[in-house]
């Protein structure tokens, strides 16, 4: 049984009738993901890619037995949709959209934590479990089944790492986009804990970037609690101070959030630092993580 997705997972697509929702539902189905329904308020009774659409999450859960949901909801409506989804009893939520106001995310995070909901994002490519399914936008052709976990702040870099590993015949147990916003719904160290406890994962790659202190906090946790081998790459050594590098959370403020500081913390915690992505393959092979 994999963490995140297993034989009992039944997935809703929220915002399924939008352009991106439709296209991504198609790609998720192509990858044999168990999509059981869609939700768009006001579009109940229609179908998208053969999937029934409901007006509310509660109806969709009632009719389909859904227990997980992936969001392609426009940013201004995400807070409302998130509360609705939690209240309908869904316990795993992937929030793909970017540009969600940070004050909304703080509320969503608090609401989810108090109700024991596991949520990823915002600004995440989602999650892909090779051979089992995917929730989100990851391009499936780059991934291969195996025993290495990947946690990435960046969507595109999660693809890059999976692609490099797959080419070197190193498969992945699960690839998780943790989200690239200043506040995320589940922190890096909490996702690390899930991989540490997963008996289908033998090692973990952290793909971080400048800004914030997720990697520094994760380093403390690794030193105390993680026994599996960990390698880390931190993107953005040429990021000028005070400039936002595309992601809302990718900003060096003064001396905080630099590549150097993050690498130092992770190295001191016993992790292997990868200077560029390609080195992940030799690290995985050397540590026999296939």
């Amino acid at each position: 049984m994999s963490i995140f997705l297993d034989e009992t997972t039944r997935i809703l697509v929220q915002g399924i009738t939008g352009k991106i929702g439709r296209v991504q539902t198609h790609w998720m189905q192509e990858y044999n993901t168990p999509i059981v329904g869609g939700v768009t308020p006001g579009k109940g009774g229609t179908t998208v890619e053969g999937v029934p659409v409901f007006d509310s999450v509660a109806e969709a859960v009632e009719e389909t037995g859904a227990n997980a949901s992936v969001f392609f909801v426009p940013a201004p409506f995400v807070l409302d949709a998130f509360y609705e989804t939690v209240d309908a009893g869904v316990r795993f939520i992937v929030v793909v959209p970017e540009h969600i106001p940070v004050h909304d995310v703080m509320k969503m995070r608090t609401y989810a934590l108090e109700r024991d909901v596991l949520a990823l994002g915002p600004t995440t490519p989602g999650i892909l479990v090779p051979g089992k399914g995917k929730m989100g936008i990851m391009p499936a052709s780059l991934f291969a089944p195996g025993r290495l976990g990947i946690i990435s702040r960046s969507g595109t870099l999660s693809y890059e790492f999976a692609g490099i590993l797959s080419e070197a015949n190193v498969g992945q147990s699960a690839v998780v986009g943790m989200g690239a916003d200043p506040v995320v719904l589940t922190n890096l160290l909490d996702i690390l804990r899930l991989f540490e406890e997963d008996d289908e994962t033998d090692g973990v790659v952290i793909v971080g970037e400048v800004g914030g202190e997720q990697e520094e906090k994760a380093a403390e946790y690794i030193a105390d609690s993680i026994k599996k081998p960990v390698a880390a790459y931190i993107a953005g050594q040429y990021s000028p101070q005070g400039k936002r590098m595309g992601h809302a959370g990718a900003i060096v403020r003064g001396s905080a959030g630099t590549v150097g500081g993050k690498c130092k913390a992770l190295e001191e915690a016993g992790s292997t630092i990868l200077t560029t992505p390609i080195h992940v393959a030799e690290w995985a092979i050397k540590n026999n993580l296939k």
């Binding site: 595109t156 993107a235 953005g236 050594q237």
Partner: peptide, 22 residues
């Protein structure tokens, strides 16, 4: 096409050449 990918590409360019932009 992505922030992380862009930053990583700059990191790799910067090993032997100099990035003009992100």
């Amino acid at each position: 096409s992505g922030a992380g990918l862009g930053m990583a590409t700059m990191d790799i360019i910067g090993q032997r050449m100099r990035p003009a932009n992100f």
